[in-house]
Design a protein around this nucleic acid. Structure first.
Lengths: 153, 153
DNA sequence: TGCTTATAATTGCAATTGCAACTACTATTT
DNA sequence: AAATAGTAGTTGCAATTGCAATTATAAGCA
């Protein structure tokens, strides 16, 4: 029995990776089919919408969305071209820049949400019980906090 | 209380995405620092090593690793250039091709494993208990099976 | 058989990503 | 204040990825 537990623990990682890859692929496909932008765009729009003043410094945004700085620069370029965000120079620190959500950006996120939400519900939430979800949330938070704590050292 | 459970369930998905992104980023960084190839290479090598005869059809390999066909074609190109796999034409179906693990490929996977294993242990396994792991494995398997089942329809 | 449709893998080309500079500042040191 | 080091963000260029053909078979059927 100890063995089966050991074994299970080892293979959970692989399952974790695979399941997420499959779900993300499916969600991206649904968004594309609906003529909507990608998950990455959603993440950025949502991060901005939650932020005070609908704006975040590029570096904060990069950290929150787990996107590299240089990538974020260009992702924000594309979002800006699409009119969903605007750039704003920081007053206090002239090196800094804010990404600011526009009304169109807010509208776009709102338009994406039903598709995204339905997918999350169908593919993820409907498959696990309340208790499991709670437990998984705890585990994930511990994992994330530990990983981020480690990096600061 | 019903509310808090609802709330938790909704945010677990976001947590999952973020945690996986952070962990994968960290693992890729460790592999790169050690002068080793990426996770994607590992996945392919490992899938082949587990397979009977150390070989898989391109499409099977693509499905197992959750990599698109066209991507896999080029990933296998790179692995072949590095001498880690070889291509072999299928006898029965001339359209088909196998990717076959070479001795060097096997050696490379073996060289990568300690780095990868240590990272998984430190970042993931050490953060969750046996019972949690077991539970998470169950949840993930259900999610994955359901998602894959859905697609076949 | 000869024709149409389906499948396995690859390829062309555009879009995205990653890494290593690079620019434009800000902060610290002497 | 001048010099040096540090930070925020961007950019160049190469590597990777995704999507829509394309190629080379195989299968189904009239």
């Amino acid at each position: 029995m100890g063995k089966s537990l050991e074994t299970s623990k080892g293979s959970v990682w692989a399952l974790w990776l695979t399941a997420q890859a499959v779900l993300v692929e499916e969600i991206e496909a649904r968004l594309a089919t609906a003529g909507l932008p990608s998950l990455a765009w959603y993440d950025v729009l949502w991060a901005l919408e939650r932020a005070g003043e609908r704006r975040l410094r590029m570096s904060e945004l990069a950290d929150m969305t787990v996107i590299s700085r240089s990538n974020l620069t260009r992702l924000v370029d594309r979002l800006a071209t699409a009119g969903l965000v605007e750039r704003e120079r920081a007053e206090d620190d002239r090196r800094g820049a804010f990404a600011v959500l526009t009304a169109d950006g807010k509208a776009m996120r709102r338009k994406m949400w039903p598709v995204y939400a339905a997918a999350i519900k169908e593919l993820f939430e409907d498959r696990i019980g309340e208790r499991e979800a709670l437990q998984m949330g705890d585990s994930l938070r511990r994992i994330l906090d530990a990983a981020r704590g480690t990096k600061e050292d």
